[in-house]
């Protein structure tokens, strides 16, 4: 390419700098296309970094799961597949409304775009509300991450209280030694709950929603015995788990909280970004010519969805 060929383009650039430069086109770009390409490129590179950041957690997950499969098996029983599935659906739908909002922005459909962004935002809210319900339930039962994982000790106390109160029924007396004798296999035959049957494992965490944070542990225990098919002598035993199983499961809740908390943080950031483009869209700042921000926020929101698509089966459907 020679000097002569380039000169017109160059002259055009210089001319262009002085007039016909729309307000939304930054001074250092020559054309809207150049600006849009740069922005998309930067966004995809950034999304690559997000994938690698979550990649670290997926790596931790893989290694822990391989080293402590039993922990993952015991722990996942306490997650509600129903809530997880509902959250997946909520995110998928909000991803769809987001994609539609981008389309609306491209077609200059301003009010439709605003409405769809609002729906997307609501989807994010719904996701976070469900997540809060799930988190609250976990913390109530001492199934938090790290130092908040107190389930084994609570379980032991419950056992002791049941014994001292002398309320151990004949069924309990039989079930407990069986569990002691041959581990989870026996526990499972005694109590068909873990994993295999959707209704009970889904129902139990729904039960957690019941506001019982101030109830004494004893009452808590009674409440859980009630919906634990009357077989276990406490909430954990109702899931077929001994204190020892709970000790093992600690690992699972650490990775569960690690992954979902980082994802939840991304949902919150995504919601803030959606609110920002929503306000800008209401002011009519976007048009068929310029809608890059909607597009980029959309990409971010889809990434959040994408990560959840992997988290759901890995955490809830072991």
């Amino acid at each position: 390419m020679s000097q002569v060929e380039l000169s017109p383009a160059q002259a055009h650039d210089a001319e262009n700098a002085h007039h016909d430069h729309p307000e939304w086109l930054a001074h250092h770009f020559d054309t809207p296309d150049q600006q849009n390409t740069s922005a998309k490129m930067g966004m995809w590179a950034f999304l690559g970094t997000e994938i690698l950041m979550f990649g670290g957690l997926f790596c931790a997950y893989a290694i822990w799961r391989a080293n402590h499969y039993d922990a993952f098996w015991i722990g996942h029983v306490y997650l509600s597949t129903a809530w997880g599935a509902i959250n997946t659906v909520v995110l998928l739908i909000s991803s769809f409304t987001m994609a539609w909002a981008v389309r609306a922005a491209q077609l200059n459909q301003r009010s439709l775009c605003v409405g769809l962004l609002a729906l997307t935002f609501l989807g994010g809210c719904g996701f976070m509300v469900i997540k809060t319900i799930e988190y609250t339930g976990k913390f109530e039962h001492g199934l938090g991450p790290g130092i908040w994982y107190t389930a084994p000790a609570i379980s032991k106390q419950l056992d002791a209280m049941a014994e001292t109160a002398g309320t151990a029924s004949h069924a309990d007396a039989e079930a407990a030694p069986a569990t002691e004798a041959s581990g989870p296999a026996a526990a499972e035959s005694a109590n068909p709950v873990p994993g295999t049957s959707l209704p009970s494992s889904a129902a139990a965490p729904m039960g957690m929603v019941a506001p019982a944070p101030v109830a004494p542990v004893g009452h808590d225990m009674a409440a859980h015995s009630a919906h634990g098919h009357g077989e276990g002598h406490n909430y954990y035993a109702a899931h077929g788990h001994t204190t020892e199983d709970l000790v093992t499961a600690r690992t699972f809740f650490s990775i569960y909280f690690g992954m979902t908390a980082l994802h939840g943080l991304h949902v919150l950031v995504g919601m803030a970004l959606i609110l920002w483009v929503l306000l800008r869209a209401r002011r009519g700042e976007f048009s068929a010519e310029f809608n890059t921000p909607v597009d980029l926020v959309g990409l971010y929101w889809h990434l959040v969805d994408l990560i959840w698509i992997f988290l759901f089966p890995l955490l809830y459907l072991i």
């Binding site: 383009a9 055009h12 650039d13 262009n16 054309t31 491209q106 068929a288």
Partner: peptide, 16 residues
């Protein structure tokens, strides 16, 4: 790309 942008420049929508 720079030159292409300038040459194929016609104010208005980015190629989406």
């Amino acid at each position: 790309e720079h030159a292409e942008h300038a040459a194929g420049h016609d104010h208005g929508e980015a190629h989406q």
